[in-house]
Amino acid sequence: MPEQRQSGPGIGSFVVSATCAVLMFLLLVVAGMLELSTPGGLDEESAEAMLIGMFMFLLMGGLLVGLGLGIGGLLQRERRKTFAILGTVLAAGTLLLTIGILLLGMMLA
């Protein structure tokens, strides 16, 4: 019996999810630094706030792509599913955590 190969969509899911998760973390750190360094807080209608929001939605879209690829990798037969599982869990966890942070921020504002 030949050795099973890794799922292509699973590998793609892991790479996309890991990249988006790291970039989302960095984006949230930058947003926090801008909020703390600006007297009176960051203006919601400033160019910086709009760019942060745009990149956040872009990264959330990337995480949805990673989630879709991970589910696709999980559905492939006769392929190893290690990276598909990792990518799916990482994408779903990052999405849930980001949505939770956004909801927390809206409740405190």
Rank of each mutant, 00 (worst) to 15 (best):
C20W: 01
L28I: 05
G62I: 06
F25M: 14
M56Y: 07
G66Q: 05
L42Q: 00
A31E: 00
A47P: 02
G72C: 09
G40S: 09
M56C: 08
L34E: 15
F55H: 06
L27P: 10
F83T: 14
V16D: 03
R80W: 12
K81I: 10
M54N: 12
L63N: 10
I85R: 13
A18C: 08
I71W: 10
A31C: 02
M33V: 15
L67K: 07
G53H: 05
P39G: 05
A31P: 00
V89Y: 04
T88W: 10
L34C: 13
M33K: 11
M54H: 09
E35C: 08
G68S: 06
V29A: 14
V65L: 14
R80C: 03
L36M: 14
V22D: 03
L51C: 05
E35F: 09
G32D: 05
G68P: 12
V15R: 04
K81E: 13
V29L: 15
C20F: 07
V16Y: 02
L69Y: 09
G41R: 00
L26I: 11
T38L: 01
L27Y: 02
V65H: 01
G87D: 11
L34M: 15
L27M: 08
R80T: 06
L64Q: 07
L74Q: 07
L28C: 10
E35P: 02
F25L: 15
A21S: 13
L64S: 10
G87Y: 12
L74R: 05
L26T: 13
A21H: 02
M50Q: 14
T88P: 07
R77K: 13
L64K: 07
A31S: 12
G73D: 09
I52A: 04
V15P: 00
V15E: 02
M60L: 15
A49G: 02
G41M: 03
P39Q: 10
L58C: 10
T88K: 05
F57Y: 12
M24W: 01
S17R: 12
L59R: 00
G70T: 11
A47V: 13
A31L: 01
M50H: 15
L64C: 11
L51K: 03
I85L: 11
L67M: 13
Q76A: 07
A84Y: 11
F55R: 00
G40R: 08
L51S: 09
E48D: 14
F25Q: 06
V89A: 14
M50E: 11
G32V: 03
V22I: 15
M56E: 09
G87I: 05
R79S: 09
L27V: 02
F55C: 08
G40I: 04
L23Q: 02
A49C: 07
A84L: 07
V15H: 03
E44D: 14
T19E: 08
L23K: 01
G68E: 06
L28Y: 14
L42H: 00
L36A: 14
I52K: 01
L69G: 05
F83H: 13
L27N: 04
S17D: 10
L26V: 13
T38Q: 01
P39V: 06
L42R: 00
V16H: 05
G72I: 04
T19G: 10
R79D: 07
M54V: 07
L58F: 15
L27S: 06
G53Q: 03
V22N: 06
L67A: 11
Q76W: 03
R79P: 05
M54L: 15
D43C: 01
C20T: 08
M60K: 03
L63I: 09
M50I: 11
L51I: 14
D43I: 00
